[in-house]
Amino acid sequence: MLVLFWCSFDTDKLPSMSLFVPFASTTKSMKPDFDQALASLSPVTFMITDSFLPWTLDSANKLSIPRFAFNGMTTFSLSLARPSHDLLRTELSDDEMFTLPDFPWIKLTRNDFDSPFRERKPKAMATSKSSGLIVNSFYELESVYVDYFNCKFSPKAWCVGPFCAVTAPLQQRLEKPSYIKWLDEMLEQGKQVLYMAFGTQAELSPEQLKEIKIGLEKSQVNFLWVVKKSIDEVDDGFKNRVKNRGLMVTEWVDQREILSHGSVEGFLSHCGRNSVVESICAKVPILAWPMMADQHLNARMVVEEIKIGLRVETCDGSVRGFVKWEGLEKSAKELMEGEKGKEARKKVKKIGEAAINAVKEGGSSWQTLNELIHELTERESV
C-alpha cells in the first residue's frame, strides 16, 4: 500500500515579497512538530514537500522515507538555469545576451534569472539530494527539456500534470459572481475580452499602474482586470471612461472559470507557472509580462519556444524594463486582433488538447505517474 505525505505552503498573505526569505527561513521552526507528525503516520512510502522546505529532507532521511521535491519550475526553466550557473558567475551585464552550447537557439540574459540561479555563488539545494522532482507539466509540452534534464541531472523529473486538468470540474453556482455576469454580457454582444492578472505577489508602482490605464484606454480592447486592493488607485475617471468595455475587480476570482469563459480570448499574465498551465488548458493565448522568480524563463518558453503568446514591449528592450502605455497598447491590440495573436491562438488550441489528453488514461502523464508508483512499490517491497 502506498501512503503519501504532502507538505507545501503559499505566500498569498505576505504583505510584501521582501518578506519571503525570512518567512521561508522561519518555516524550519516547524521541524520538531513536523518530525513528530511524520513519525506518527509511519509507515509512509514516500513524501512530497515544497522545494522551499529543504529541511524536510533531513526529516525524511531520519525515517528512511523517499522525499520528492515539488518545484513550480518547468523542466525548460531548470534545463536552462543549471547550465547557466558558470556564466552567471562571470561579470556579464544584466542585459548582455548569451547562449548555452546545448540550446544555441535560445538567447538569455542575467535578467532572465532570479535567486538562487542569479547568484554568483549559488547555494547548494536540497532538491538535488532528493529522490525525485515532481513537475506540474506534461511531456509533450517540453519533451526536449525533459529528456535533457533527466539525462544530465539528478534527481529525475517526473511530469505528472497539468494538475488543473485532473481537478474536479467547475461547479455550477446558484448565483454567479458579478465578473462572470459581466463576461456573459460581453459574450452575448459578441465581444472578445482580455483577462489581466499579475498574481498575488507582484507589486506594481503607481507610475506603472498609470501607464497600464492609459495603454488600456487607448487600445480600445475589452478587458477584465484583477487588481490588488492595495493598488486600487483612487478613481481618476478611468473606470467611467472604460465602463462599457472594461471591468476592474479587487475581490478573489476563480481564474480557471474566467479563462474557460467563451468571451476570454487573451490573458495578460505575469507568467507564474500555474497561470501558464491554466491558460494552456483553457486554450487561451498569453501576453507575457514577467515580474520575478522563474516568470522570465516561463515567458521565454511561452513566446519563443512553444509560441503560444506575445511579450509586452518594454521601453528599453530589457526583460525587466518599464512598460510605457505605447508598448502595452501595441501588444494588447496585436494579441487580440493581429496576425501574431491569431497564430498564437492556433498554437495554444493544439497544445491545450495535448495537455488534456496527457492526463487521460494512457496519456503521457498518466503513464509517468504509473511508472512512479511502480518504482515506489518495487522499492518498498525490497
Score class of each variant (00 low, 15 high):
L14H: 05
K243F: 06
I258P: 05
G132A: 05
L335A: 01
K31C: 13
D114E: 15
F238M: 12
L38R: 02
D235T: 09
D10T: 11
K342F: 06
Q171L: 13
P22I: 04
I280G: 01
E329H: 02
F70Q: 03
S381Q: 14
V226I: 08
G352K: 05
T109P: 03
V3P: 09
K152I: 06
V276G: 00
N357H: 14
M97E: 12
Y179E: 10
T27V: 08
I134M: 07
V359E: 04
C151P: 06
A354L: 13
V3A: 12
L310H: 00
V193N: 04
R300S: 08
V166M: 15
A197I: 01
W55N: 05
L268C: 00
A282F: 00
D294N: 07
L376S: 07
D10Q: 10
A39V: 12
A288P: 01
E96R: 12
T368L: 07
A124N: 15
L87R: 09
S230P: 06
A354K: 10
I106C: 04
V276Q: 00
L183E: 01
D86R: 15
L41K: 14
G161V: 09
V135E: 05
K181Y: 04
G317L: 08
E233N: 10
S25Y: 05
C271P: 01
M17K: 10
E140K: 03
K330Q: 10
K228N: 05
L204S: 11
E91M: 11
K324F: 07
G363Q: 03
N298T: 02
G363N: 03
K350P: 10
I231R: 06
L19F: 10
I351D: 07
A69Y: 07
A168E: 13
Y148V: 01
N71P: 10
S263V: 05
L108T: 07
C159I: 08
A168M: 09
L376D: 05
E334H: 03
V3F: 13
V319I: 14
V221D: 02
L133V: 09
F238D: 05
S279P: 00
P155F: 04
R89T: 11
F223N: 09
E119S: 13
L268Y: 00
F23D: 02
P122F: 07
A24N: 10
M248K: 15
D147N: 10
W289E: 07
A344R: 01
T90C: 11
P43A: 04
P104F: 02
I373S: 14
I134F: 02
I306C: 01
E207S: 15
V253P: 09
K324E: 11
K239W: 06
N244F: 10
E361T: 11
S269W: 00
S143W: 01
I212D: 03
S18K: 15
N111Y: 03
E378V: 14
R300K: 13
V348G: 00
K213G: 15
Q295N: 05
W55T: 07
M17T: 14
G161E: 02
D316V: 01
N244A: 12
K360L: 05
Q208R: 06
A202M: 08
F23A: 04
S18A: 15
S59H: 03
K191M: 14
